[in-house]
Design a binder for these strands. Structure first.
Lengths: 123, 123
DNA sequence: CCGTATCCTAAAGGATACTG
DNA sequence: CAGTATCCTTTAGGATACGG
């Protein structure tokens, strides 16, 4: 299959309109964390080492806007919010897992390449 | 399959060490463009609408460092440089295509979700 | 608890000029 | 042709404080 045929990678091809939104630092991880069921804000946050509240909030908003997760305010005090995958969000997990398996399988080879490259430019 | 089990998404899990390097604005497109064979710098550039020379250079360097492409200076004047996929780079294309197919199939639904979301916050 | 708002710093990104 | 170097502007990102 040809990817983005004709005008390859014009600014409005699906890849560029959607890929940028899901290929950021945290989105994929959020989707994976939500796989086993709905979670509250801080429950998600605890599983993503190093994420700040601001970054996570922005990420969750973007995922919600793109229809990949839902946000539900629970009638509780203090406030409680639950995030949950939509069917669309769930459908992204198969391609994502393929990518994850690739990273796991390829990382050793990549690290060797990095070493070789870094030594070469140091010389 | 569980993704990044135990300490989910610790800073050193394969996803975070490698994914960030290939999930940027241009890398995936570069790999796709090189699929049909080696290409020279400007040949790649012409297919990526809006990329600047600086951004493309950085992207190609990173791909080279990670062992996904090779860079070869041809004995010519003026200088000519050829970029080519490595087997490792080629092996990334299957997972990438799965993702591309997902974006194509999901974009209509995503656009509806965006509309609904934007109208909802405007109100 | 789940955010938003503000401020500040660091980093990304474009434009231009220059070189082998 | 294929970069590198410099400058500059814009954006992202963390830290903190505060509110529903």
């Amino acid at each position: 299959m040809e990817i983005c045929p004709v005008t390859r990678f014009a600014a409005n091809c699906p890849l560029r309109v959607l890929f940028d939104q899901i290929a950021d630092k945290w989105s994929m991880m959020v989707l994976a964390v939500l796989e086993s069921g709905p979670l509250r804000f801080n429950a998600v946050k605890r599983q993503l080492e190093g994420v700040t509240q601001k970054a996570l909030t922005q990420c969750l908003r973007r995922l919600e806007r793109n229809g990949l997760i839902t946000r539900r305010v629970l009638p509780a005090s203090p406030i409680a919010v639950e995030y949950e995958l939509t069917p669309l969000g769930r459908s992204l997990q198969d391609p994502f897992k393929a990518l994850y398996l690739w990273t796991v399988a390829s990382l050793p080879q990549v690290e060797l390449a990095r070493q070789a490259f870094d030594e070469r430019i140091a010389a």
